[in-house]
């Protein structure tokens, strides 16, 4: 177990390096960037642009920029500098990380908490009315682009005279200290992003869970368990569900990087204070070290997620062993 962990961590380093190299290359391939767009402002001349390019070392060969970035991380733990904000990347990310993690964790937890029981329910009551209704809502979720859902919900709120049409707070609570009123205000806003982000996830998790459970319920060991006279509840939860959840665990590992990069467009429409829109804007501006840092964070989380999923797989499924 420990050697497995150690091995994985050792392997992770070259993988991360490879990813960083690829991501850097991808960023270099991006068209445009903030330097070019500065020219539209009457204050800026091509000479200024050239000087700023030199100031940020962007006139150096690409590989030198990459190595310099890497060196700063290794030697100083410095993830680079945001050209646009004249600030260190890590402080910028730090500012936005709180709400991002909060929203992501909340939506992941909500999704799973709703989807798994629903999946189990629809598997057991295959042809029931409630199950079909749950399916239908699920399909609606996956068949509608998330930003259309966001727009429709906003239109709905507007037509009922509500004011919670985006963001996590009403304007007056954004910078207010925590209070019950602020919490209430947040809850009044929170349901829209949770529906928009969660709906699609719920539908697919639920359907996959249903399929897996139906498979497992037909397996011999479940039959054996049943024939041994175990209570249906025990059979279901202790034997069937535990096995059926295996593929879901692999998926859960993949959902960790969603903290950063998923639902960017929905976050923009809903005006959520998360990292997604920040990443998108930095990409458009080609603020390269911001993009690098965010994407590396995302890659790191993916690897952590995968590792956790592998461990959870081994724990949940006694058939799996890592030698």
């Amino acid at each position: 177990m420990w050697t497995f962990l150690l091995k994985r961590i050792l392997v992770a380093i070259p993988t991360l390096l490879l990813i960083s190299l690829l991501v850097f290359a991808v960023i270099q391939l991006q068209p445009g960037g903030f330097l070019q767009n500065m020219l539209d402002d009457p204050r800026v001349s091509p000479e200024t642009v050239a000087r700023i390019r030199a100031q940020y070392g962007l006139d150096q060969p690409v590989w030198e920029q990459y190595l310099g970035w890497l060196k700063n991380i290794v030697l100083h733990g410095d993830f680079g500098f945001s050209f646009l904000n004249n600030r260190s990347v890590s402080s910028l990310i730090w500012e936005r990380l709180g709400w991002t993690v909060f929203l992501a964790v909340l939506s992941i937890v909500a999704t799973w908490a709703i989807a798994i029981p629903l999946g189990i329910y629809t598997a057991i009551n295959r042809h029931g009315l409630a199950a079909n209704l749950a399916n239908l809502i699920g399909y609606l979720g996956i068949a509608t682009p998330d930003f259309l859902v966001a727009l429709l919900l906003i239109a709905l709120v507007l037509s009922t005279g509500g004011s919670n049409v985006g963001g996590l707070f009403s304007p007056q609570y954004i910078d207010a200290p925590w209070s019950w009123a602020r919490l209430g205000d947040m809850l009044g806003h929170l349901w829209i992003p949770l529906i928009v982000i969660g709906l699609e996830g719920i539908a697919s998790l639920m359907r996959q869970m249903r399929a897996n459970l139906l498979d497992v319920l037909g397996q011999d060991y479940v039959r054996t368990a049943r024939s041994k006279g175990l209570a249906e509840r025990v059979v279901l939860w202790k034997h069937a569900v535990r096995n059926a959840i295996n593929p879901m665990i692999s998926l859960a590992g993949l959902s960790l990087p969603n903290l950063i990069s998923s639902t960017i467009i929905a976050s923009i429409v809903l005006n959520l204070p998360t990292i997604g829109p920040f990443l998108y804007q930095s990409l458009l501006d080609k603020d390269q070290y911001v993009v690098m840092a965010l994407l590396m964070l995302s890659a790191f989380m993916l690897m952590v997620g995968n590792l956790l999923a592998d461990l959870a797989l081994a724990w949940a499924d006694p058939r799996i062993r890592y030698e």
Binding site: S163, G166, S170, P171, I268, N271
Partner: peptide, 20 residues
Amino acid sequence: LEYLIIPDSQAQVAQFLAGN
């Protein structure tokens, strides 16, 4: 004088209609 940071133009319209 307060400024809300809202990148999306549709979201801006929504916030305006909502009175925010």
